[in-house]
Design a protein around this nucleic acid. Structure first.
Lengths: 217, 217
DNA sequence: ACGCTGCCGTAACGTACGGTACGGTACGCA
DNA sequence: TGCGTACCGTACCGTACGTTACGGCAGCGT
């Protein structure tokens, strides 16, 4: 009970976490058409409790998104004994983790509701997903990129530009196609292959031993 | 009721086109929250006519998406007197056109509703946008890529893989950030710069004069 | 034992909106 | 002049769902 999971500064009880997990599975199943009644039924709780805990439907959705985001933390890339090998494996691991999360049903469902609510929204789900999705990825990857540059393994001027290129090489059209409902089979093998390919392409563009064609000063 | 409303290959009257344009602007303003009443009011037509012409709300949305798609056709890249210069300018022109469309308010709005309705939908807006978005782009670009390969300017085995890499280099995180509501200023200058950068990076990866690092042997 | 608290289950309320019906008007045509 | 067609404007209906209210129960402190 003392293990309070601080989301922004809300401490969630175990019961509430169960409710949010139920909301997550419903979000995956039914998308944005989930109703307060369906959540209450699935979680075996009363609607009164839902409104008491989360305020309104928007608050429930927001809490659900944040709850999921709080679970994805971690995956640190810590630099020790750094070299081209560890840079490469770091990038590959990052890319494959990312593709795995991105293509997961939960991520697809959450991005769908966030896109649907973007902008016109009290709590602005879009901003929350943006913050815990692309922006969090950037914050996590950039230290590795800077380390690569500082050790002379990478050449670029703008860290953000380098990150965004890596983003493009990794994600390509996968996310938009999944969001638009394209049936997509992303096997474990395909993920690993894509992660290696993206990493090699990135190194070809920004690696020290090649002429950097990417950062057109 | 004999007037079967043909949705694909529909001949639209001018009045109906006006109505769909009104629906488009409402979609941009209000997103998926647009109501039949609001469309009728904005277009100065009766709801009865809306239902007569488009069947139901889903039919109206579908017709609106298709109407917009029918306007974006064109932009042919015709190959004559082909060389590295025309390949480069072709890729750049393609990339900049694409970024311009992608970052437009109409495209963002349509992709939002399509993502929101993806899968769970009678007419499957997601599939329609997918077909007229990424897939149409692929169909348009691939001839240019094949021409580049046939003339020895490009090296790759899988045309689809090459296209998807170009997709990633061009779009990067722009589309998802826009869809999630990130305020984004994509000036004309920035679009041109990005188009050139993406093209140069693509040529660095797949150009004949460089070791192709992209297409896993 | 008594009251308080927290919660479940469900009934009830208000409303927004998709869909339909209907009266009124303009226009073409015999 | 009368009839049919197409359409606008609006009133209307049914329903789904967000939100609230209430009755009942279980646990806990005193």
């Amino acid at each position: 009970m003392q293990s309070t999971v601080e989301v922004s500064e809300t401490a969630l009880t175990e019961r509430q976490k169960d409710v949010l997990d139920a909301a997550l599975t419903l979000l995956v199943e039914a998308g944005d058409t989930l109703t307060m009644t369906s959540v209450a039924r699935r979680a075996s709780c009363s609607k009164e409790s839902l409104y008491k805990w989360f305020g309104d439907r928007d608050g429930l959705l927001t809490a659900t998104v944040q709850w999921q985001a709080s679970k994805v933390r971690g995956v640190p890339v810590d630099p020790e004994a750094f070299g081209l090998t560890s840079l490469t494996t770091g990038l590959e691991r990052f890319a494959s983790d990312w593709l795995r999360v991105l293509s997961g049903t939960i991520s697809v469902a959450l991005n769908r509701v966030a896109v649907g609510h973007a902008g016109s929204d009290k709590h602005d789900l879009g901003a929350i997903v943006l913050e815990n999705g692309p922006f969090a990825m950037a914050r996590r990857l950039k230290p590795l990129l800077r380390l690569g540059r500082d050790t002379g393994l990478l050449h670029f001027q703008d860290t953000d530009e380098a990150f965004r290129t890596f983003f493009g090489l990794v994600v390509r059209d996968v996310q938009i196609r999944l969001l638009l409902g394209d049936r997509f089979e992303l096997t474990e093998a395909a993920i690993d292959r894509d992660a290696r390919r993206a990493t090699q392409q990135f190194l070809a563009l920004y690696g020290a031993d090649t002429k950097a064609a990417g950062d057109g000063h």
